[in-house]
């Protein structure tokens, strides 16, 4: 199928549309699937990810829930126990903390504590991430909490193609998945791309190499992938060729792709939006130093948010977050080590 001159603009989809298609197609494919969340039915979701789904599938399968994150997740656990697949939306991923107990103590442990009798096909998804002036409670990346809770898979797509493919894979996985969507990418025009018309998934646990390079490896996920790519452009002008790896899923983590890259570049910078202390970048660096120490010519570097909340107004927000400038400087120091 080659794009014609007349049609391409119509076929290109943004990140948000890709997510909506994933949910719609899975609802159609799996009559035992239910969607629930705050304002997802009548309104179609605060951002419109579920727009039109209640009209299509009815208010029993696309459920407007009370403002009760713990009940949204806890009832999803019960539905899964009784044979359903559930997509549970958090209006902002920041609010997931209100349902934390149900995730880490009830859902994440279910398969383990029942010795495999019960599995939990539940995807808890929601808009995440900073750089949009969302301030303390509409900007979080709290993925590390869930990476530290055995039994959960953790996913964070950065492109429309991945958003759709990873969400479909998550909804079919059979394990509870915490799915971090980057709201700043929802409608970003330059990311729009043609999506396959046929059914496809992107398997969990497989990283993507977004740019090849020989001198330093950036490892990241979500929005910071684009900061890494921009930094790589900058660095190329100075003769430094950076490779950019998008891990796409944190749990399970594709370590092999990371080590293969470091075998080539011998230098690594790991980037995430979350605070540094006990963040996922630290986990990646720990694994690299344990498993790929001999490949390194310089100490691994973490570029993360400062150990602060995400402040509101732009100068404050940008001050605490990873930036292209911070990445370029770190890369130059690393290659000169």
């Amino acid at each position: 199928m080659s794009a014609t001159v007349d049609a391409p603009a119509i076929l290109k989809k943004n990140y948000l549309t890709a997510l909506k298609e994933a949910i719609d197609e899975e609802m159609l494919r799996n009559p035992d699937m239910i969607c629930q969340g705050e304002d997802i039915g009548l309104l179609g979701g605060a951002f419109g990810v579920t727009d039109g789904l209640q009209a299509k599938y009815g208010n029993k399968r696309v459920v407007d829930m009370p403002i009760s994150e713990a009940a949204i997740i806890g009832s999803a656990v019960g539905m899964a126990l009784n044979g359903k697949t559930v997509m549970a939306e958090m209006q902002f991923i920041d609010f997931i903390s209100c349902g934390f107990d149900q995730i880490v103590n009830m859902m994440a442990t279910y398969h383990y504590r029942t010795a495999g009798e019960v599995n939990m096909p539940v995807v808890v998804r929601g808009p995440a991430g900073a750089y949009g002036g969302g301030a303390l409670y509409h900007s979080q990346m709290n993925e590390a909490w869930f990476c530290n809770s055995p039994g959960l898979k953790v996913v964070c797509p950065s492109t429309p193609y991945d958003a759709k493919g990873l969400l479909k894979a998550s909804l079919r996985d059979g394990n509870p998945v915490i799915f971090f969507e980057i709201k700043e990418l929802y409608r970003r025009r330059e990311l729009e791309e043609e999506l396959p018309s046929e059914d496809y998934i992107v398997p969990l646990g497989k990283a993507a190499i977004r740019r090849e390079g020989t001198d330093v490896t950036f490892v990241s996920y979500g929005q910071n992938v684009y900061h890494c790519l921009a930094a790589a452009d900058e660095l190329a002008k100075q003769g430094v060729h950076a490779e950019v790896i998008d891990i796409r899923t944190l749990v399970p983590l594709d370590e092999e792709t990371i080590y293969n890259s470091i075998a080539k570049t011998n230098r690594v910078i790991v980037v995430n939006e979350a605070p540094m202390t006990c963040g996922f970048a630290g986990e990646i660096v720990a694994r690299i130093t344990t498993n790929a120490f001999d490949l390194l010519d310089a100490p691994p570097v973490r570029i993360t948010r400062l150990d602060t909340p995400v402040p509101w107004v732009k100068p404050l927000e940008l001050y605490v977050l990873p930036s292209v400038e911070k990445l370029v400087n770190a890369a130059l120091q690393t290659v000169r080590y």
Binding site: S75, V77, G78, M79, L81, N105
Partner: peptide
């Protein structure tokens, strides 16, 4: 009480 929402979900699915 953490199992009450689970019970509610079981009931909903039923």
């Amino acid at each position: 009480a953490g199992t009450i929402p689970v019970a509610a979900g079981v009931a909903y699915a039923d």
